[in-house]
């Protein structure tokens, strides 16, 4: 049976924060509704109020500020995928956003919702991780800024407190010379949650040596993280298939270290290695 609640749509951020200050514990925030409406339909959503932030202009910018790319939490996947700025300085995120669900889901679903929902399979999370993204959270009493890796505590769990909302995310822009890759595995070619996904950024110096490599893999660890063990294998090396495999194996070890051996490991271990290899090959080799 559908959940029942009241609906409130503030006209400004401060109005929203005031509302949350008063009713935060009884309120669910809605932006695109693509996650929330599922639990509202099943009756799992338990709240008195739903606060609609989807039209707050304060949550809708995509712009550079102080050398960082700020993306408002209510910016949709479709907008991220198409926006010239994201395509320019965060192409790996733009690519990931273009892989989410379907046209309809991308037209509705927002980056803030994707982060707050904190699904291990969320497509924007690995790209945000390689951009060292920080989440800006506001409440009536102030603002805090958290690294995404700290913001998400586990599958579907964040440190967002009642009364708070995500206003935007801050990304380090991709510097010139970097290459990028986003790869995902799904059970069909569209409209399918990723079985696992990978975002990678890499920079090769004039001598053909990898100077910087950032790698994040979705659906293999309980919390988003950077695969530093694999990054270390790659940095200061020349891009080389053998090294790619070494890095890929580090990732799968990391996965098993975190989650132990499960029935799904038989597939996920070789698959994550394959996917990481695919991302690295895509990053550095014109031909796999």
């Amino acid at each position: 049976m559908r959940s029942r609640f009241r609906y409130y749509r503030p006209t400004s951020l401060s109005e929203a924060l005031d509302f949350l200050a008063l009713h935060g514990t009884d309120t669910a925030i809605v932006a695109g509704g693509t996650d929330l409406m599922i639990s509202a339909r099943s009756g799992d959503l338990q709240c008195k109020y739903v606060l609609d932030v989807s039209r707050l202009n304060e949550l809708r910018p995509v712009a550079m500020s102080d050398g960082l790319l700020a993306i408002g939490s209510a910016v949709t996947h479709a907008e991220i995928a198409a926006h010239p700025v994201t395509r320019d300085v965060a192409p790996v995120l733009a690519k990931a956003a273009s892989c989410v669900g379907s046209t309809q889901i991308r037209n509705m679903g927002t980056i803030g919702g994707n982060i707050a929902n904190a699904s291990p399979a969320a497509d924007t999370i690995p790209p945000l991780m390689v951009h060292n993204a920080k989440i800006v959270v506001k409440s009536a009493s102030g603002e805090r800024v958290e690294y995404l890796g700290d913001f998400v505590r586990g599958p579907y769990v964040t440190i967002l407190k009642p009364g708070e909302l995500i206003t935007h995310v801050l990304l380090e822009p991709m510097m010139s010379g970097y290459r990028h890759s986003f790869q995902r595995i799904a059970r069909r070619r569209a409209l399918s949650i990723a079985r696992m996904n990978v975002a990678a950024l890499g920079l090769v110096d004039g001598n053909g040596v990898i100077q910087d490599l950032r790698l994040s893999v979705g659906s293999v660890t309980p919390r988003p993280c950077r695969m530093t063990v694999a990054e270390d294998v790659l940095t200061s090396n020349k891009p080389d298939k053998k090294v790619f495999w070494e890095a890929a194996e580090k990732v799968s070890h990391e996965m098993v270290r975190w989650s132990g051996i499960r029935p799904t490991t038989e597939y996920k271990k070789p698959a994550v290695e394959g996917l990481v290899y695919r991302a690295l090959a895509d990053l550095f080799l014109s031909e796999g």
Partner: peptide, 28 residues
Amino acid sequence: GIGECGACTILVDGKAITACLMLAPQLD
């Protein structure tokens, strides 16, 4: 009813969305 089939697609401000995932007051 959960955004997976598209049978409920409508255009809102010219964009295709699935009406089953939109709250009625959001039409305002």
